[in-house]
Design a protein around this nucleic acid. Sequence first.
DNA 1: TCAATATCGTGAGCGGGCTTACGATTTCAA
DNA 2: TTGAAATCGTAAGCCCGCTCACGATATTGA
Lengths: 147, 147
Amino acid sequence: MPDPSRESLGFLLIDAGRAVRRRFELRAAELGLSAAQWRVIAQLHRHGPLPQARLAEYMEIEPISVSRLAERMEKAGWIRREADPHDRRIKLVAPTDKATAAFAEARSIADALYADALAGTPPGTRETLIAILKAITNNLSPGTDHD
Amino acid sequence: MPDPSRESLGFLLIDAGRAVRRRFELRAAELGLSAAQWRVIAQLHRHGPLPQARLAEYMEIEPISVSRLAERMEKAGWIRREADPHDRRIKLVAPTDKATAAFAEARSIADALYADALAGTPPGTRETLIAILKAITNNLSPGTDHD
DNA sequence: TCAATATCGTGAGCGGGCTTACGATTTCAA
DNA sequence: TTGAAATCGTAAGCCCGCTCACGATATTGA
């Protein structure tokens, strides 16, 4: 039998993603930052202050998930949520100084982690993997117009 | 700036995994089977009836997660949980006929999904990706003795 | 102008992960 | 033999996704 579980692309993908997340959170535990929270901060540093709806698009999750996430992050002092002066529906999310400081830390944790993850693989593996993952996400995402 | 979010291996991995899971569950919705539940059934068909602790090891999740998952699956009629005659601590998990029937269905859904996911990529991409993902999981898992 | 439509954020409730902590068993070593 | 240690399953309580449903606000079109 062709090993219905271990050879399954989906299983492997989900396993690998979970392993990376688990390791990151283990090492970033003292920062008090989860993987999802780090993703938020990274988006904010990339794009500047954002409405929650925009954040949801960039992260490719649902607005309600951003709502909960932002609520916890605001409570923990990672972000501020300010009213948009031009549109009273919108809450503009911005990183605090604490978030900006943690960003660099988390980045280096992640870099070290990726090095660990790819240890022992041939050179160029990272680029190959990135290209494949982008293709997969593009192929499977409905609004297919990333990057 | 080197695109701190979109180029991040972790983000890409998590995004791709989520995209695959989302698509699978969309198509398997009429089976009433989630990705995690399908993983359980796949393990049972691979290994036969298992104690929950063994299932947790194979799936690389915590026993408590299996506990909840199995509880829901039992209620939905996917599995039975029987007492082990030789060890009263153990609950042996076995698939029902309903699960066995759904297994083949889900398998073909997954196969079609993987084909979609890798559409437009060079031949051999699948094998390359599988090899890399296995390496990552091995590198990052504590008990490192998989396949 | 003003009613229909679209967008924004969130409540309720659920699935699936996790850590920590526990009682019930079994196994093992003194 | 018996007490310590390991193993099994689960309760409690959290984070992070989701669908469905909703009020509030903007935008648009008749």
